[in-house]
Nucleic acid binder design. Sequence first.
DNA 1: TAGATTGTTAATCGATTAACAATC
DNA 2: TAGATTGTTAATCGATTAACAATC
Lengths: 209, 209
Amino acid sequence: MQKKSKIPEPTIARLPVYFRCLMDLKNSEVTIVSSEELATRAGVKASQFRKDLSYFGEFGIQGLGYPVLHLLDRISVIMQLNRKHNAVLAGVGNLGNALIRYPGFSRWGFHITRLFDKDPAKIGTIVEGITIEDIDKITGRLNAQIGIITVPPDAAQETAELLAEMGVKAILNFTGKKLEPGHGVVVRNVDLTHELAILTYHLSTLKGK
Amino acid sequence: MQKKSKIPEPTIARLPVYFRCLMDLKNSEVTIVSSEELATRAGVKASQFRKDLSYFGEFGIQGLGYPVLHLLDRISVIMQLNRKHNAVLAGVGNLGNALIRYPGFSRWGFHITRLFDKDPAKIGTIVEGITIEDIDKITGRLNAQIGIITVPPDAAQETAELLAEMGVKAILNFTGKKLEPGHGVVVRNVDLTHELAILTYHLSTLKGK
DNA sequence: TAGATTGTTAATCGATTAACAATC
DNA sequence: TAGATTGTTAATCGATTAACAATC
């Protein structure tokens, strides 16, 4: 339990990709798949796929391949996708509104259950059946481990701290600000401007060709 | 010009982070900054920051540090952030709508200039001053190198091909589908469900502590 | 000049890949 | 059994980091 036997972060980031490919195979009623085939679909090398899985156990049948349903099941357990997760969202602006309605979330078992904002004009209004609450008047613990932060950048840090205090253990941060949450809170940053900047960098290198 | 002298992708992904930190320093009217200070703000090691810069040239003054404005300028040139970029957006759903209004884009010089959709109910309507066009009736070349794809997953590939045909060279793909664009087109994938899945994976490991 | 900090080299670390023995 | 494909080891590759000579 103390020994970490560290799993590489790139491996973890690839699991959802494998999961998605397996879903496609399941929908096509494929029952067994080779590492070669699955890796090709996922855009990685077969040996990398097998190596990635090896951190978690043995899921294949030698000489045959991987039973799609079984592997799907195992990965869903590893990633906790076998159960529903509640999430709260802070900052009901444009992006926040879009995420509330984003169908992908519920399809993967993520449900936004509470909404917070600071704007008095928004507080009390109902979005997708959820009443927007005053973030400064949160009472009691949230029944959610995930927090999605789409507030303006300057409010990012205080929002993160607030959510962490209320029991949030994982934060998806869209603000572009680096967050320093308390201990025991995981953060992932999604920065859309950075993504475009990386693309424009590559545009300049394409030109050279 | 042919020699690639490959710049690591992780280095490129950090440039926007440095850029943002330098902007903050500029706004605080700091004129010079050490690699130590800047790296701390960016969340990396000082040696990594210096190494990253070294791929592009020498920007510092030994014994002193880096002139904020100068470095900002140089990075903005490297990343092409010194000029405006037009982008087109395909799929004016919830996410698409949010991105059109996302203030971060214009602040970094990205401007969405044309909107496309397939839904007859949407075609012809105006969003933020831009008329939504029928994606199947695009005429002529687009005056944009960047395409943002927020269509439903099943339409992802055909949309990518269409945009590439119309001159788009860089694609930001929100659909969760792997794209196979033509040669000479760069793609970056943003998959919000994957981000949440990675978080829930880490939730389970936190529990162990 | 003495002190500080860069730019760069070399060492370390970690992730990817190829190769193959194990085994279905 | 013969053929196929896994799981794993070992080799390769590439990125991060420490250390320090160069130099402001």
